[in-house]
Design a protein around this nucleic acid. Structure first.
Length: 612
DNA sequence: CAGTTACCACGCGGTGACGGGCGA
DNA sequence: TCGCCCGTCACCGCGTGGTAACTG
């Protein structure tokens, strides 16, 4: 077991700033030293430090060494269980972890006894029925996990970066299209990995296993089980991250994403076998993240393999389909996947259900929001918390009328509330070789201030808007929120407090709600809270009225012209500015730059994620 | 009839060709 | 005049969901 003997375990989540504490006094001392550590404060005020041993003990482990560290945090987690169900933090996780539509055992619990094989035998062994969730899930003690989408296995922490989006899909039972030529996942899997040995080498890969032994069918607006799953499905079900093998430092340095992973139903496909995972339609699958230490030459050592870490995020469960069944899922995909933008403009008019049935907020709802906030574009952002279709609610003229500088993404005082960590992705993502270089050059893409790696010392905070405890954020400095990790939505995750304003997705876990006096000095987190104008806004009612912590219903993202790729020249002439080059001019070197230089020396285009 | 497949239009970014401005 | 830099434009490829035709 990879426990650390009962020491409280604090991590900045980026793995480069992890410390262990033997005593509470150590924590307090550390707190003094690290006043600005938002993560840390979260841990303190919620007394939800990671307790490795407890976590480990909660797994009900396996005799197999490999699975000894397998983490199934959150599996079968019941509403309010993932989070501390304390009054001030009454967890709305239930709204995230949707119950199955048919009431059957969606929260199928892997026991960790399955192996790596790609055969059907790796199906989670027991039936759903055999897993009365309250007993089966690995973490009975709720408070141990302060962050959804975070899993600690052994020493390693894996954070599901786009957790909110996954959760949003999960709420409606995620469907993933599979085609013969392979279809990318959306949302895709993206993790932040921490607490690895920086010098050791690891393979990081994802496999997809059957989530249950049932065949599913969509009937009457619900997914219902229908017969047994077909076993012994041939084909690859493992996708090795192209950077593998690589050092722990490498994996921890950047986000590890699997955006190019493709799903196919073509069993005989010999092409791109390395990039494709073969699945069967109408079966429910569970992706798993594996981190295996390997030898210097990259080969897997039996002993090291035994220490492999596996993380399972139930929210990433999906049903493979050849055509979308649930219109809600279709709508979510259209709304969030930038490649589906072509379906956004007329979709509402053609297909939109009544507002009350909408998955995503109606224009009316969106218009209630402050305009002009999310000035990002494209896939990466959408992947995290995409705005609604860009054109849906706010025309550029409207934005201008609202007094926002559409040319300056950071100009909006509220923009950072909608900024996606996916922007950071552009500078901190590990995905194939496509993350080529510096996308953070524009000031808009400053590293996320919570990073405390060697690349980003706390001094960063001093320059960040958070250092100005006033909470007033200049447009320029607000950009600091635009990138990096961990994702704001983790730091401020869900747990929409009943007393709190909307935008719970961005609310600090810490609560300043009545009855729960602040246990800490003004936190750097506080500026994270939405500005008053947003706070005062009535809670958005999505479908079901419950994911206030997700992205705001309407956010204006911008096209390239507004994304900072262009800027006014000295002569007022519109001048194209390379998104990759400006860092040398006005922006301090960013982490991504370093990463770029160290790793590949190429530049990471924003959309480079999709480079081929 | 349910599920699968192939094709479609769409939006987007990347790329290269082309031309204009500017300095040597 | 030449070379360089930069901006504009068109084209291309990719990935997307929709849809009709096909299949078992």
């Amino acid at each position: 077991m990879g426990g650390i003997g009962g020491n409280l375990y604090l991590s900045m989540l980026n793995g480069t700033d992890t410390q262990t504490f033997g005593k509470d006094t150590d924590i307090n001392n550390h707190l003094q030293r690290r006043k600005n550590s938002v993560d840390f404060k979260m841990g303190i005020q919620d007394t939800r430090l990671y307790h490795q041993d407890s976590i480990q003990n909660g797994q009900g482990g396996s005799a197999l060494p490999y699975h000894a560290d397998q983490t199934v945090a959150g599996y079968g987690a019941q509403p309010g269980r993932f989070y501390s169900p304390t009054p001030h933090n009454s967890c709305h996780f239930s709204s995230v972890r949707s119950p199955t539509r048919n009431g059957t055992g969606q929260t199928y619990l892997p026991t960790g006894s399955e192996g790596f094989s790609t055969t059907s035998k790796e199906v989670y062994p027991a039936s759903a029925e055999s897993y009365p969730a309250p007993v089966q899930h690995g973490y009975y003690r709720a408070p141990l996990y302060p962050l959804p989408g975070l899993q600690v296995c052994g020493k390693t922490q894996a954070l599901l970066n786009n957790y909110p989006l996954w959760a949003k899909f999960h709420k409606y039972q995620t469907e993933m299209i599979i085609t013969k030529q392979g279809r990318r996942m959306f949302p895709f899997l993206s993790f932040n990995i921490s607490v690895l040995d920086p010098s050791a080498r690891y393979n990081v890969y994802v496999d997809v296993v059957l989530s249950d032994q049932h065949h599913w069918r969509y009937q009457g607006g619900k997914w219902v089980q229908c017969g047994k799953a077909e076993g012994n499905m041939p084909g690859n079900r493992r996708y090795m991250h192209p950077d593998s093998p690589n050092t722990g430092a490498h994996w921890m340095r950047q986000e590890v994403s699997f955006g190019k992973l493709k799903l196919t139903n073509n069993k005989g496909s010999a092409n791109n076998v390395g990039q494709m995972i073969v699945l069967q339609s109408l079966h429910k699958y569970q992706p798993r993240l594996h981190i295996i230490e390997v030898k210097e030459d990259g080969s897997e050592d039996l002993f090291l393999t035994a220490k492999a870490q596996t993380s399972v995020f139930p929210e990433t469960q999906f049903i493979a389909v050849t055509a979308y069944q649930n219109a809600d899922i279709t709508q979510l995909k259209i709304d969030h996947n930038p490649f589906a933008k072509g379906f956004r403009d007329n979709y509402d008019a053609l297909y939109a259900p009544p507002d009350s049935d909408r998955v995503t907020p109606s224009p009316t709802e969106g218009q209630q929001l402050l305009a002009g906030t999310c000035y990002t574009q494209g896939y990466l952002m959408d992947q995290y918390m995409n705005p609604l279709p860009q054109n849906r609610f706010y025309s550029r003229e409207h934005m201008a009328a609202m007094g926002h500088q559409t040319k300056d993404p950071s100009a909006s005082p509220h923009s950072r509330w909608y900024l996606s960590p996916q922007q950071s992705v552009t500078s901190n993502r590990l995905d194939f070789n496509s993350y080529e270089g510096d996308f953070s050059s524009n000031s808009f893409y400053k590293p996320f201030p919570l990073q405390t790696s060697a690349h980003h010392t706390l001094s960063y905070y001093e320059d960040s808007p958070f250092a100005t405890a006033s909470g007033s954020v200049s447009g320029a400095s607000s950009a600091a929120w635009s990138t990096g990790r961990p994702s704001p939505q983790y730091l401020n995750h869900p747990c929409p407090s009943k007393v709190g304003p909307s935008l719970g997705w961005f609310r600090p876990v810490s609560s300043t709600s009545p009855g729960h006096p602040r246990l800490h000095p003004p936190s750097l987190l506080e500026p994270l809270r939405p500005p008053p104008s947003l706070q005062d806004k009535p809670k958005e009612a999505g479908v079901g009225g419950e994911d206030p912590w997700l992205e705001p219903p309407s956010v204006k993202s911008v096209d390239s012209a507004d994304s900072g790729l262009f800027e006014g020249g000295a002569e007022g002439k519109k001048r194209r500015v390379s998104p990759y080059a400006s860092s040398t001019e006005n922006s301090p070197p960013t982490r991504s730059v370093e990463v770029c230089e160290k790793d590949c020396g190429s530049d990471a285009g924003y959309y480079g994620f999709y480079s081929h």
